[in-house]
Computed example of a mutant assay.
Amino acid sequence: MNKMIFVFLLLSSLCIAGCTKEEKPKKNNIPKSTLYFGEGKYWFGTYTISKVDSMYYDSLTIQYINDGMHSKIGNIEYELKTDNQKLESSFPRPLSGYDYFHISTGLNAELIEKGLPKKATLQIQWKDKKETIILKRQN
């Protein structure tokens, strides 16, 4: 009788263990690349967040809007803010080529996996001027 109870309990526990559904971790729905864009009177900006393998990278491009003539803007300072991060110049930065500035960095995956922001605020300072642009998520 004891053997029969033992076999019954053993089979019951095996059935319960085999029938229990294993919970898989939830996958977040973060796309491989997300683009933000915004323009102001003097500047426009693009900001991208991309995932390559297990790493996240971001890329910011700030472009002066001109009439086809190379302008003498000089150095700029910038600050990009989202809900959970801030990227800013630590000193005045020169523009390149056709009056643009570009920077790319690696991101903390934990910040991104909490969710992508809907917008970013970009502030640009040059000479004695300042412009603030809202970069809206495009995808």
Rank of each mutant, 00 (worst) to 15 (best):
I49A: 01
D53Q: 13
G40A: 02
K26M: 13
M4V: 15
E110I: 10
R137W: 03
I124H: 02
D67C: 08
G38E: 03
E131Q: 04
R137T: 07
M4I: 15
E77D: 09
G68I: 00
N66L: 04
D58E: 05
G45S: 03
K27E: 15
Q63V: 06
Y57P: 06
N108G: 06
L107V: 01
N29M: 12
K27G: 12
T48Q: 07
K81L: 01
K21G: 14
Y64S: 04
L87D: 02
K27W: 14
I16E: 08
S90N: 13
F6V: 15
V7A: 12
S104L: 08
C19Y: 15
K21W: 13
W43P: 00
N2I: 12
I5S: 10
I65L: 07
Y42F: 13
S89F: 02
E79D: 10
L14Q: 09
C15W: 14
L35W: 07
I5G: 10
K129P: 03
M4Y: 15
Q63K: 08
F6W: 13
S96N: 11
I30V: 06
R93C: 11
P25N: 12
C19H: 15
K86Y: 01
D58L: 00
L107R: 03
S33L: 11
S12Y: 11
G97I: 01
I133H: 03
S12F: 14
S90T: 14
F91D: 12
S50W: 06
M55W: 15
D67M: 09
Y100S: 06
N29L: 11
F91T: 14
Y100T: 00
E39F: 05
C15P: 09
Y100E: 05
I103F: 06
K41E: 13
K86M: 08
F37Q: 07
S104H: 07
K26E: 15
D53H: 13
I133G: 00
H70F: 11
I65Q: 05
E88F: 09
L14D: 09
G74I: 00
S33T: 09
K3P: 11
D128Y: 09
L87E: 05
W43A: 00
D67L: 09
E88C: 11
K32R: 15
L10S: 09
W126Q: 00
L10E: 02
G68W: 00
L87P: 03
S90F: 12
N66G: 06
K129Q: 12
A109Q: 11
F91S: 14
L9C: 11
E39Y: 08
L60G: 02
T20K: 12
N2G: 15
A120W: 00
S90L: 14
Y64N: 01
L60T: 01
T48F: 04
K119Q: 11
G45F: 03
E79V: 08
N139E: 00
I124M: 03
L10A: 10
L9V: 10
Y98H: 15
Y47E: 01
L135D: 01
K136A: 12
L10G: 08
S12C: 12
K127L: 10
G97E: 04
L122Q: 04
D67Y: 06
K136Y: 12
S104N: 08
D67G: 11
P31T: 06
S89M: 00
I65K: 05
D53E: 14
R137Y: 04
R137C: 07
L80Q: 01
P92K: 04
L116V: 06
S13M: 10
A120D: 00
Y42V: 11
G106E: 14
K24H: 15
G68E: 03
K41S: 10
N66Y: 04
